[in-house]
Simulated assay, not measured.
Amino acid sequence: MYNTRISTTISPKHAAILKKHAKEHGTQQKVLELALETFDRKASPEPTLSPEEVFILRVWKEKVGCMIDKELFSVLIKTADLKENEAWFNANKMYMAFGLELLYQKPFKELSLREILDGLVFLSKTGNWFNRYTYSDEGDHYTLWIYHNFGLNGSRYLLIMIENIFNSCGAKYTSSVSEKTLFVKIFK
């Protein structure tokens, strides 16, 4: 490795700054190299955040969410008192709707059924709640599939949450659950 010699003049103001930082970093050469590296880092593009990361930052900023270990979440769901939770969801009908309002930045009542379904898929990916959460358009209805590891009680718990959101928007639906899956047919 070899060094390249440069020669330049700088203003008295910048000479004072260079001198001050040379005391801190040892040499003027070191200060200039650090300054150039910093300048180069700032000039390179910042990595862009995914929509999920942007939403997580918004939830964090609003202080409306919390992180929980997925295994602990599974235990909590499997051992939950479904009657008590169903009563809570019925009393707080807009709980799931709030997440959608935060995502879309508009009132829940203004969301289309498609936006609600897209939003639920987005929120589930962001929260890393399920193994798979998707829906398809079947013409006269949508079919929503949720695959998870929370057991039958977990499916029932998830159904309470899903029914809450579809009841809140006035959608007609049918549903069935098993130990690892939840299927919901939502009519347009």
Rank of each mutant, 00 (worst) to 15 (best):
E110C: 08
D140A: 11
K93D: 03
K125Q: 13
H141I: 02
D137S: 03
E101T: 15
Q105L: 08
G127E: 04
Y104R: 04
Y135F: 14
N90L: 14
T134Y: 06
K106Y: 03
D140L: 13
K109E: 15
Q105M: 10
K125C: 10
R114L: 12
F130Q: 05
K125E: 15
S136C: 02
G119E: 10
E101L: 14
F108M: 05
F108H: 02
N92I: 06
Y135G: 09
E101D: 14
S136P: 05
S136V: 11
D140I: 07
D140E: 15
Y135D: 04
Q105R: 02
E115W: 11
K106P: 07
L120Q: 04
P107G: 13
L117H: 06
F130N: 11
M94A: 08
F108R: 03
S112M: 04
T126K: 09
T126H: 08
L111D: 01
P107R: 13
F122R: 06
L111R: 12
F130G: 07
L123S: 08
V121M: 04
S112G: 14
T134W: 04
P107H: 10
K106R: 13
T143A: 00
F130M: 12
I116F: 03
T126C: 15
L111C: 07
L103A: 14
E110Q: 15
N131A: 12
V121S: 05
G127A: 15
P107C: 09
N128C: 12
N90S: 14
A97G: 15
A97N: 10
H141C: 11
Y133V: 01
G119R: 01
W129L: 15
V121Y: 03
L103D: 05
F122K: 10
Y95H: 09
E101W: 04
L117F: 09
Q105T: 12
M96L: 14
